[in-house]
Every structure is written in structure tokens, then in C-alpha cells.
Simulated assay, not measured.
Amino acid sequence: MFSSNNTVLTQRALSVLRIVSAFLLLQHGTSKLFGFPHVAYFDNLQVFSLIGLAGILEVVGGTLLLVGLFTRPVAFVLSGLLACAYFIGHASKGFFLFPTLNQGESAVLFCFIFLFLAAAGAGPWSLDAARSRGKA
């Protein structure tokens, strides 16, 4: 009995992790592309730049993850994006094994959360789950 209850709670927690992580990533993208929330560093961002491309992936991918649609492939792509963001944007600012020193903690954390979601899926509170229920 405890085992099945634990499985249900684990699956619900997976959905919550996906939703919260997607919402936080989405804010990175909207700050780059739309200036909200405002981050001065992105004031004159060119959309057709590496950071602009990251913003597009963050908005599109974050939105898809938020609703749980195509979760596994989207999370895999975003995991790669965040790995690149760390090594391109943060690792060069300090010893790469200590992300605290180069302000890369969130990139590393997002990278591994999205890699986990690519393996684990979206959880029960997702459009992916609703689509698979509809096929059954």
C-alpha cells in the first residue's frame, strides 16, 4: 500500500518539478525577448544572436514544458542549451568545477533537471499524459 501511494506522490512531484522549472526558465526567455522581467544586461539584445536564440528556445521550450507537451525531446534540447550556456557563458569566468564562482549554478541545475525530465517524462499533470490516455 505504501509503495503505490509513494508512486502516485512521486509522479505528482515530477509534474510539479516540470511546471516550476519551466516557469522559471520561461522568465529567462521573456526577459531576453520581451524585456519582462527587466534585466538591464538584455536591453539591446539582438534576436539574431546566440543569446537571442537562447531566448527563443527558452520561451518556446519553456512554454511546451509548462503544459507538458513533447516533454522528453524538448527537455533534452533544453538540457543541451543549458550545458552550452554554462560552458560558453559561465565556465570561462572562473574555474568551471565551481559554478558558484562563475554565477553558473542555475545553468547547471536547469541542465540536470531537464536531463532528468527527458528521461522521466512529464508526469500525470501534462498534455503528454492526456494524449496518451486518449490513445488508450
Rank of each mutant, 00 (worst) to 15 (best):
G68H: 02
A54G: 15
G35R: 05
A129Y: 09
S3K: 10
F23M: 12
T71D: 10
F2Q: 10
A22I: 04
A85P: 02
K135Y: 01
L69Q: 03
A83H: 00
P124N: 11
T100M: 13
A22T: 04
T63D: 02
Y41K: 13
H28P: 00
L65C: 02
A129Q: 08
E105I: 09
I19K: 03
Q11F: 01
A120Q: 14
E105N: 12
S126M: 06
Y86K: 03
G121S: 05
A129K: 01
A91Q: 06
S92T: 11
A83Y: 04
P99C: 01
L26Q: 07
I88M: 13
G35C: 08
G134W: 07
S15M: 05
F114L: 15
V77N: 06
L26F: 15
V47S: 10
R12M: 13
I56H: 11
V39A: 13
P37F: 13
L65H: 01
S15T: 13
I19W: 03
E105F: 02
S21V: 06
G68R: 03
L25T: 10
L9V: 07
G89H: 08
F116M: 14
S79Q: 06
L53N: 04
L65G: 00
L9E: 03
T100N: 11
C111A: 15
L25D: 04
A13D: 04
G68N: 02
F112D: 05
G104A: 05
F34Y: 14
N5S: 13
L78E: 06
P99H: 00
S106R: 07
R131G: 00
I19T: 11
L115H: 05
L69G: 01
S79I: 03
G104N: 06
L53A: 15
L127P: 09
F2N: 13
A83K: 00
L117F: 09
F96Q: 00
T10D: 09
I88L: 14
N5V: 10
L69T: 01
A85R: 03
G29Y: 11
